[in-house]
C-alpha cells in the first residue's frame, strides 16, 4: 500500500508540468479568496486574451528551447511581422496575402538566426541579441517610429486574427489553443518531435544515429519566429494598428513562461502544455494582483520571484522523480 502510494507520487512527479500546474492552482486559490471578482467569466476571458499573445510566443520559444537553443529576437519579430502585413495591406494587397507575407518575413528571420548560429557556432544568446537589435532598429527606421494603422475597410480578416468572437472571448485565445495542440502533437506524436527532444537532450547521440542536427535547429528557429509573428498579428487584429515598439522585452517574458512551465535552459526537456500553463500563470498573476488591489507594479516584482522559485522547484521535483 505504502509502496503503491510512493509509486503514484513518483509517477505524478514525472509529469513535467506538475510544478507549474500546482503553482497555478495555488495562485488561483489565493486570488479567489482575495477577490470575489476573480473567479468570474469576464475576468477569465480577460486573462485569457492577455495571456494569448504571450502564450503564442511562449509556445514557439518552448519548441525551440527543447532543441537546446533560444531566441531573444521574438519580441522584435512580434512587431516586424504585423508591420510588414500592415504596410502591404495599406498598399492595397489582400489582407490574407499580407498576412502570409508577414509570416514569411518572420520565417526568414528565424531561418537567418538558425543559419548564422550553425555557420558561425556563436551562442544563440549573441546571435539573437544581434538580430533583436537589428530588426527592432529596422522596424523603427522603416516606420519612422510612428504606429501604423490599417486604413482599409476589409476588417473581417483582422477580426479572425484578434477580434472578439463570442462571450467576450477573442480570436487570439483560439489561436493560442490551436497552437498549443498543434505543437504538442508535433512534439509528442511525430518522428520530428522525437528528434527535437534528442537534439536538445543529447546532440552527440542524435548525430550518431544520423539525425541532421543543423536542420532540426533551423526548422525550430523558423517555427519559433513564425509563432512570434502570428502573435504579433493577433495584437494587430485587436488594435487595428501596430506600434514599432510593440513587444519590447516580450522575449524575456516568453522565456520566463517557458521556464516556469518546466523547460530546461539546456534543452531536451519540457512541454508545450507547460508553456501554456506558464503563460497563463503570468497572466493570472497580472490580473489577480490588480483585482486584489495591489498597484500594477507589484506584478513585475512577483513575476521575478515566481520565475526563480519555479525553477528551483522544478529542479527539485525533477531530481525527486528521477532519484
Amino acid at each position: 500500500m505504502k509502496q503503491q502510494l510512493h509509486k503514484l507520487i513518483v509517477k505524478l512527479l514525472r509529469i513535467s508540468e506538475i510544478g507549474s500546474l500546482s503553482g497555478l492552482l495555488i495562485i488561483v486559490l489565493v486570488f479567489s479568496l482575495l477577490s470575489e471578482h476573480f473567479l468570474t467569466w469576464t475576468n477569465f476571458v480577460g486573462i485569457f486574451t492577455m495571456t494569448a499573445e504571450l502564450g503564442i510566443i511562449a509556445i514557439g520559444v518552448t519548441f525551440l528551447m527543447i532543441s537546446g537553443e533560444f531566441d531573444l529576437s521574438v519580441g522584435s519579430v512580434f512587431a516586424v511581422a504585423p508591420m510588414t502585413g500592415a504596410i502591404l495591406m495599406n498598399s492595397g494587397i489582400s489582407p490574407f496575402f499580407s498576412f502570409l507575407a508577414g509570416l514569411f518575413v518572420a520565417a526568414l528571420i528565424g531561418g537567418l538566426n538558425g543559419f548564422v548560429l550553425i555557420k558561425t557556432k556563436i551562442p544563440s544568446f549573441i546571435v539573437t541579441l544581434g538580430s533583436m537589435m537589428f530588426f527592432r532598429g529596422l522596424l523603427l527606421a522603416v516606420s519612422g517610429g510612428f504606429q501604423i494603422s490599417y486604413i482599409g475597410q476589409n476588417n473581417s480578416f483582422l477580426e479572425v486574427l484578434g477580434g472578439k468572437i463570442f462571450l467576450g472571448m477573442r480570436a487570439s485565445g483560439i489561436w493560442f489553443i490551436i497552437g498549443t495542440i498543434f505543437f504538442s502533437y508535433i512534439l509528442n506524436r511525430t518522428k520530428y518531435g522525437n528528434h527535437v527532444f534528442a537534439v536538445g537532450g543529447n546532440q552527440e547521440a542524435a548525430k550518431a544515429i544520423g539525425i541532421n542536427v543543423s536542420k532540426v535547429k533551423i526548422i525550430n528557429f523558423v517555427a519559433c519566429s513564425v509563432m512570434a509573428g502570428l502573435a504579433g498579428f493577433t495584437m494587430f487584429g485587436r488594435f487595428n494598428s501596430i506600434d514599432p515598439t510593440a513587444g519590447l522585452q516580450l522575449e524575456l517574458e516568453a522565456i520566463a513562461a517557458a521556464v516556469i512551465g518546466g523547460v530546461l535552459l539546456t534543452g531536451g526537456y519540457g512541454s508545450i502544455i507547460g508553456a501554456f500553463i506558464g503563460a497563463f500563470l503570468i497572466g493570472i498573476l497580472r490580473s489577480g494582483l490588480i483585482l486584489a488591489g495591489a498597484p500594477s507594479y507589484w506584478y513585475k516584482a512577483f513575476i521575478g520571484i515566481v520565475l526563480v522559485v519555479s525553477v528551483i522547484l522544478n529542479t527539485k521535483i525533477r531530481k525527486a522523480a528521477t532519484g
Binding site: 522525437n194 543529447n202 547521440a205 544515429i209 531536451g268
Partner: peptide, 24 residues
C-alpha cells in the same frame, strides 16, 4: 542516452514506427 526521454524513444530514435497518418 537522451536522458529525459522514455526507454522506447531511446531505442527507436531515428526509426520511429509511424501509423498511416504519418504520426508516431
Amino acid at each position: 542516452p537522451v536522458f529525459h526521454r522514455p526507454i522506447m524513444e531511446n531505442i527507436w530514435l531515428g526509426r520511429e514506427p509511424l501509423n498511416r497518418f504519418g504520426f508516431v
